[in-house]
């Protein structure tokens, strides 16, 4: 399989990272060599293998329904690039 410029543009869109044509071309090369290497997995037959999603083979622990976190708006907003003390502020969303 091979990854072309169109694919790179598509995944750059999905991952919200703009890439110019030069970087996109470089990425085509990089990703193709990485995927050539990844294709090795196709040597293995895995139809009957159960996928392993978590290595910690226990189950989820549940916490009780208690409110512990208080109003920490100041802390939450402190690091933001833009805010108005009440809200995070971002450039207009275009629908």
């Amino acid at each position: 399989m091979s990854i072309d410029l169109k694919t790179i543009k598509h995944i750059s869109k999905l991952s919200r990272i703009s890439v110019d044509d030069q970087r996109a071309k470089k990425l085509v090369g990089d990703l193709n060599s990485i995927f050539d290497f990844i294709e090795k997995l196709n040597e293995l037959k895995t139809e009957n293998v159960k996928p392993l999603t978590s290595i910690a083979e226990t189950t989820l622990k549940l916490r009780s329904d208690e409110v512990q976190s208080k109003n920490i708006r100041e802390q939450i907003i402190k690091n933001s690039p833009q805010d108005n003390e009440d809200y995070f502020v971002v450039p207009k969303v275009i629908e």
């Binding site: 919200r16 990272i17 703009s18 690091n79 690039p81 833009q82 450039p91 207009k92 969303v93 275009i94």
Partner: peptide
Amino acid sequence: GVKYGYRANGENLIDMYEKTRS
């Protein structure tokens, strides 16, 4: 670029995302 960290200027939200992350 919304809650913390570096933000690049963008004309709209998506533009901001794409530039910030790039």
